[in-house]
Amino acid sequence: MKRGVARPPALRDPWWLALPLILVALAFAALFLLLPLVAVFGYAFEKGWDVFVTAIGDPDAREAIRLTVQVAAISVPANLVFGIAAAWLVTRFEFRGKGLLVSLIDLPFAVSPVIAGLVYVLLFGLHGWLGEWLAERDIHVIFALPGIVLATVFVTFPIVARELIPLMQAQGDEEEQAARTLGASGFTMFWRVTLPKIGWGLLYGVILCNARAMGEFGAVSVVSGHIRGLTNTMPLHVEILYNEYQSTAAFAVAALLALLALVTLVLKHAIGWRIARTTSDESSTEARP
C-alpha cells in the first residue's frame, strides 16, 4: 500500500477535470448512500425514543431479531468451516474439475436469491422431491428454521472461500512444509501455522458473511412462509410492518439492520487496514539485504 505518496506532477490531473469528478462522486454518494441512511434513522426516531423502543420491544419484533441471530449463528460457522475446507482444497491440491469447483463456489453470487429459495421449495416442499419422505417422518424444512438456514447458507456460501482463496494462493504453503519437517502433525500445522497466517482474512470473510446472513431477504422470503413471530427474520419483519402502514415500527427495525451494516463497515475497514499493514511490512523489508 502506498498511502499518501504524492503522484509526480506529470500524472496529476488538471483542476478543471478533477473538480467536477469529485463533485459528481460526492453528489452520488450523498444522494444514493448517505441520504437513505439518514432517512432510515430519521424515520425510526421521528416520534421519539419511546416509540422506537416500543417498536423494537414488540414480541413479534423480538422474535424476528432472535430468529435472525439464530440463523446467523448456524449458517456463519457452517460457511466458515466450508470456506476453509474449500480454500484449502483449491489452493493446496491439483485435481481434475478444479476449475469447475471454483465456478460452482461462485454460483450463489451469480444466481438470483429468489431462485435459490424456489429450488429449496422444489426439493423439500410438500410437493417437492423429498417432500413426501420428509412429511412421513414429520420433518419440517420449508416454512421452518431448517429451510431458512439452508437458504441463508446457500446465499452466503462463497463469501469466506472467496476471501481465503486469493490470500492462501499468495501466501503459498512453504511455511506448512517447514512445519512438517520440524515434526508438526497435521492438526498442529493447521492450528499453529495455517490459521494464524489466514486469521485476519478469515475474520474479514466471517464479518461480511454475517452481515449478508442477517440481511438476506429474497431466498429467505420464499422459504419462510412469513409466519409472524415464528419464521419471520428481521428483513421480512420490516416488509410486513411497512405493508401494514406501521412505518415508524418498520423503520425502527430497519434502523437496527442499518446499524449492523455500519458496524460491519467499520470492522471491515479496520481489518482491511490491518491486513494491508501486515502485508506491506513484509514487502517493504523484502528488499533489504
Binding site: E174, E175, Q177, A178, A179, T181, G183, V193, P196, K197, G199, E282
Partner: peptide
C-alpha cells in the same frame, strides 16, 4: 527427522 532450509526460508511470519 531432517533439517530442511527453504530457499525463501519459510519463516513463520506470525
Amino acid at each position: 527427522h531432517v533439517g530442511f532450509m527453504f530457499q525463501h526460508y519459510a519463516l513463520f511470519r506470525h
